[in-house]
């Protein structure tokens, strides 16, 4: 059980670290790539999106990649 807990917490830690790095990218660039309306919005809106970007980074990454592919 302890090994399982270690694995789970290790996964959670890595997931969160990548999430934080992704959130920085999302704040400066990713949010614009996903939704053009962000350009018209204040920077505080993007600040508010940071926790969501940390929590849902795989989904957002997938959506951004998908969007860039379809716009090619």
């Amino acid at each position: 059980m302890e090994l399982l807990i270690q694995l789970f917490l290790g996964f959670l830690g890595i997931y969160t670290v990548i999430g934080v790095l992704f959130a920085l990218y999302f704040f400066f660039k990713g949010a614009f790539a996903l939704d053009p309306l962000i350009e018209e919005s204040k920077w505080t809106v993007r600040l508010l999106l940071i926790p969501g970007a940390i929590g849902l980074w795989p989904l957002l990454l997938f959506k951004i990649i998908n969007k860039s592919r379809t716009s090619l």
Binding site: D35, I38, V45, L48, L49, P51, G52, I54, G55, L56
Partner: peptide, 11 residues
């Protein structure tokens, strides 16, 4: 946390 973090219209 996930619910609160995604409560904005953007999400």
């Amino acid at each position: 946390f996930l619910m609160a973090a995604t409560s904005h219209d953007f999400w």
